[in-house]
């Protein structure tokens, strides 16, 4: 197990080499946070009754916006295609020649990266939101802890999905088609674009039955108190189990099909 920790540690440390990218990321996430907050606050203002929309008050909505922006980097909303790159270049050969679980090799590095992104991008973005807006905070220490736990859970679910999307690289050479579809699915069904509660009933019911909810919506609901701690984390664990099993299954199929590029 030590090796997986060492891999995570190095992935974590590696992020510190890219300080300009970090600052640019924080800036972008914050600009979107400000713009979305402004839009939602204007909409809520125009609603003269000033109450809530499908369970979200104006303050809760702005809080949702900033948590969502802070989670973009840790859970990699916009996709991640590192494995497909190694399939395409053939570099995957050296990774598969290691006495390691291929899934564990990438998961541990992704978790290390996610912790780095959380500290270097997520936390600063959320602090900027907290400085400029009146956010809602978890009421109890238990909820703070549950929220912190829900982030690695969200990363694992997101990782499993990204891992599986990357494995398509064994069948197709060009990932752009899959990437477009995958990004839309995750952006919409995770609750990143809009809170899932705001979608039309039929769509909402579908999204609530999909794993993507565990990536953004559940951490937000745990923070806001909309989901019970046990129910929220429990559902994430359920999706981790399902998605991990699915990822391993797809990997075993891919390994039988494997076409390694290059000499």
């Amino acid at each position: 197990m030590r090796i997986y920790f060492e891999l995570a540690l190095r992935a974590f440390r590696q992020l510190f080499a890219y300080q300009a990218a970090m600052l640019a990321g924080i800036f972008t996430n914050s600009v979107f946070g400000v713009m979305l907050s402004a839009v939602y606050l204007a909409l809520f203002d125009s609603h003269s009754d000033g109450t809530s929309v499908e369970g979200f008050s104006a303050r809760e909505t702005v809080t949702y916006v900033w948590i969502g922006q802070a989670l973009i980097a840790p859970v990699m909303i916009w996709g991640w295609w590192e494995i497909i790159k190694t399939i395409r270049t053939g570099a995957i050969v050296t990774d598969m020649l290691k006495p390691l679980s291929f899934f564990g090799f990438w998961l541990s590095r992704d978790l290390g990266r996610a912790v780095g992104h959380l500290l270097l991008r997520g936390v600063p973005t959320l602090i900027i939101g907290a400085l400029f807006y009146d956010l809602v905070y978890p009421g109890t220490p238990g909820r703070w802890i549950a929220f912190l736990v829900s982030i690695p859970f969200a990363v694992i679910v997101s990782f499993c999905f990204r891992f599986m999307m990357n494995l398509w690289g064994f069948w197709v050479l060009d990932h752009r088609g899959i990437a477009g579809i995958a990004t839309v699915i995750v952006g919409v069904a995770s609750g990143h674009l809009l809170p899932i509660a705001w979608y039309p009933d039929a769509l909402r019911d579908v999204f609530n039955m999909l794993p993507f909810r565990a990536i953004v919506m559940l951490p937000v609901e745990i923070w806001l108190g909309q989901a019970g701690i046990v129910e929220g984390l429990g559902l994430q664990v359920f999706w981790i189990l399902v998605m991990t099993a699915a990822a391993h299954w797809l990997q075993s199929v891919a390994e039988r099909k494997v076409v390694v590029q290059g000499g």
Binding site: W168, W171, V172, L173, D174, R176, G177, I178
Partner: peptide, 18 residues
């Protein structure tokens, strides 16, 4: 033995290749 596939561009091409 390898199967050399025809390759299609774009989102639907990828889906069709599958």
């Amino acid at each position: 033995r390898f199967t050399v596939r025809r390759h299609r561009e774009g989102a639907f091409g990828a889906m069709r290749s599958l």
